[in-house]
């Protein structure tokens, strides 16, 4: 019966849009939507290319609290242009993090939560997306000095391109089974390196290397969560309560260089060989 109850009350996080995700994670009634759709700060570049723009450029910046702690959530809408970051959406993300850093410098302990559903740079705004992502990365490292910056990759888009590097800079990174995390999109690897290197149509192969379960098994993320709003919110509550003292993963060059030195790079890699390498280290 309790299983049935749980099922009846479970609520998928993956199925929610960016704005609903932010609202579901913040304390009830605490959400303030900054530069909301009615501000109509749209992409200044898309319509000239014949592409319909979205009123909030696909990025939601929501201030509020989680467990009473001040938090800013920046959520990317994966359904608009594949969650790609252009000038406006990128500036919203970077600007929100920069203001969170400023809060902390002024003694306000604002933490940041990034809901990442993104293919990376929006190629229609190429260099402005890339520049914005560099600034997002700079601001993550700055906020991380004071308060957690928690990345959540829930799926179904996943997190790729420059934003996967940003995910790698977060103090904590949470994924679900529906998440994929990797630098280069499968199509681009196939284009650049050939079908033998990477078959973009072989979905099981791609999931085996970059899916949430594999990333969790390799210790490249901090938590592997069920696709369930209450589970993700609970994990955020705990992480904000007890962020821990671990060295951020992006500072662990010594450990990773040591592991890579032991990895036989002559044969092609597969999911098992990478797990063995990274799990051997954890044991």
């Amino acid at each position: 019966m309790s299983d049935l109850n749980a099922l009846l009350h479970s609520r998928s996080f993956v199925e929610l849009g960016a704005r609903q995700r932010a609202a579901a994670l913040l304390d009830q009634g605490s959400l303030r939507d900054l530069l909301d759709p009615f501000a109509r700060v749209k992409s200044p570049w898309l319509e000239a290319q014949g592409i319909v723009a979205q009123a909030d450029d696909g990025v939601v910046v929501a201030k509020g609290s989680i467990g009473g702690r001040p938090v800013v959530i920046a959520a990317i809408e994966g359904n608009f242009q594949g969650g790609s970051l252009g000038e406006v959406g990128g500036a919203k993300l970077a600007g929100a993090l920069e203001l969170a850093a400023e809060d902390n410098r002024n003694g306000i302990p604002t933490a940041a939560v990034l809901l990442l559903e993104t293919g990376g740079v929006r190629l229609q705004e190429a260099n402005l997306g890339l520049a914005a992502i560099a600034e997002v990365q700079a601001a993550i490292v700055e906020v991380r000095q004071y308060q957690p910056v928690i990345g959540v990759v829930a799926g179904p888009v996943g997190c790729f391109g420059g934003m996967s590097i940003a995910a790698g800079l977060c103090s904590h990174l949470l994924v679900t089974r529906e998440a994929r995390l990797g630098l280069n999109g499968p199509q681009v690897i196939e284009q650049e390196a050939g079908l033998d290197e990477y078959d973009s149509r072989d979905r099981p192969f791609i999931w085996s290397l970059t899916g949430g379960e594999q990333r969790a098994a390799c210790g490249l993320v901090d938590a592997y969560l069920a696709d369930e709003v209450s589970v993700i919110r609970e994990c955020l509550l705990q992480t904000l309560e007890q962020p821990g003292e671990a060295l951020p993963r992006s500072r662990q060059y010594a450990r990773f260089l040591d592991l890579l030195a032991r990895f036989d790079a002559a044969p092609q890699a597969d999911a098992a060989s990478v797990r063995a390498l990274y799990q051997g280290d954890q044991a």
Binding site: P37, F38, E77, N79
Partner: peptide, 14 residues
């Protein structure tokens, strides 16, 4: 009110 998203087969309404 705002609903929807400029995604494939969808629309945003303000």
């Amino acid at each position: 009110a705002q609903v929807g998203c400029v995604g494939s087969g969808d629309l945003e309404v303000l």
